[in-house]
């Protein structure tokens, strides 16, 4: 069932991670946490952009809202860890809905410009919180209570936490996969492809877009909370707009409206990042590698949009009962339809 390109790339990615694990376990754990964190964020963006065509350029802002909600609740009020996760998701969803209500009715530009402004606004607001309060301003937020503190061994505790992150990632993945193939996902896709047409068949496109942006923000908030409890320290300047665009690259490389592709894209981007970090110690170029990486992010966005806009793993037709019946009874026609959808590889 898996796309050929995707399968090969997936095996390569898994191989690299395994190689890391053989060399250094705690480094690999860190890598896996980042994979889970970014994958949740990328999947949430995929729901918004890939399925509903909404241009959220302020993803990092919603992550920050989740992270700081969880952080403040834990550090100042000692709220237990699971409740913090839920509160983070709700807070981010509320901000998402707040920005979505006036903008999703308008052209895509407005949403793009608004979300990027909101993202920066949140960061600047956090920067300017009083440094002597729990928020910490530019000095950052400290004192988040570590989760799983009943485990005394720190290494085991890390394993437990990374494990939980991976579980939450799988949960998100399955949830979005189900949404994507449900009537909700189909309506979102139809809005993305032709809003007028879906309006004409009686769909309240406004409500669906609002829903997509709110759910996407909730997931971003969840990712933010995971981030907060992993580092137990938050600084406003980690939530730079560049993070948002890193997530965009993951979605664009992976393939929009294809959750598996997006996860693959996440893995590729993060591994490139890690490998260049390692390579930096051995190869000396007359370039500053961090800046060069960011240039590469920009270049990748442009090149992928130009030469492979469908991403590495293209979008698949929605799986519905009717489709399954068609696959069994009329394989030829199905192939034709798939070509129409932009797919190239046979399953």
């Amino acid at each position: 069932m898996v796309d050929k390109t995707g399968l090969i790339l997936g095996i390569i990615v898994a191989g690299i991670i395994a190689a890391f694990a053989a060399v250094n376990v705690s480094y690999t754990l860190d890598l896996i946490f980042f994979l889970a964190f970014y994958a949740i964020a990328a999947l949430s963006l995929n729901l918004e952009y890939g399925y509903a065509g909404l241009s959220n350029f302020g993803k990092v802002g919603f992550i920050a809202v989740g992270a700081y909600t969880a952080g403040v609740l834990s550090a100042a009020y000692g709220v237990p860890f699971p409740l913090c996760l839920i509160a983070a998701a709700i807070a981010a969803a509320a901000v998402g809905a707040f920005i979505a209500i006036p903008t999703v009715k308008l052209r895509e530009d407005y949403l793009g410009m608004s979300t990027i402004i909101i993202g920066e606004m949140i960061r600047i607001l956090l920067r300017n919180t009083p440094t002597n309060s729990v928020w910490g301003g530019v000095f950052g937020l400290r004192g988040i209570k570590p989760p799983f503190d009943f485990i005394t061994n720190t290494f085991e505790r890390t394993i437990a936490y990374v494990g939980l992150s991976v579980v939450l990632f799988f949960f998100t993945y399955i949830l979005l996969e189900r949404w994507g193939n449900s009537p909700l996902g189909r309506v979102l896709k139809s809005i993305r492809d032709d809003e007028l047409a879906s309006k004409s068949i009686g769909k309240f496109t406004y409500r669906y877009k609002l829903l997509a942006l709110t759910l996407g923000s909730a997931l971003a908030g969840l990712a933010g909370a995971l981030y907060a409890f992993y580092f137990l320290y938050l600084n406003p300047d980690t939530f730079l707009p560049l993070v948002t665009f890193l997530i965009w690259v993951m979605v664009i490389i992976g393939g929009m409206a294809n959750n598996a592709g997006v996860v693959l894209g996440t893995a590729i981007v993060i591994l490139i990042n890690r490998l260049t970090q390692i390579a930096k110690d051995y190869i000396h170029l007359p370039l500053e590698p961090n800046y060069f990486q960011a240039m590469l992010v920009g270049l990748l966005i442009i090149l992928f949009l130009m030469f492979r806009p469908q991403g590495l793993v293209p979008e698949k037709p929605v799986r519905t009962p009717a489709w399954r019946v068609l696959e069994e009874r009329a394989p030829k026609e199905i192939d034709y339809l798939k070509e129409g959808e932009g797919g190239e590889e046979n399953e």
Partner: peptide, 21 residues
């Protein structure tokens, strides 16, 4: 339209970090 906006962000990142470089 969204793709064009994203592309312009790509251009922005490229220019900005080229200047950083």
């Amino acid at each position: 339209l969204v793709q064009l906006m994203v592309a312009s962000i790509g251009v922005a990142l490229f220019i900005r970090y080229a200047l950083y470089e």
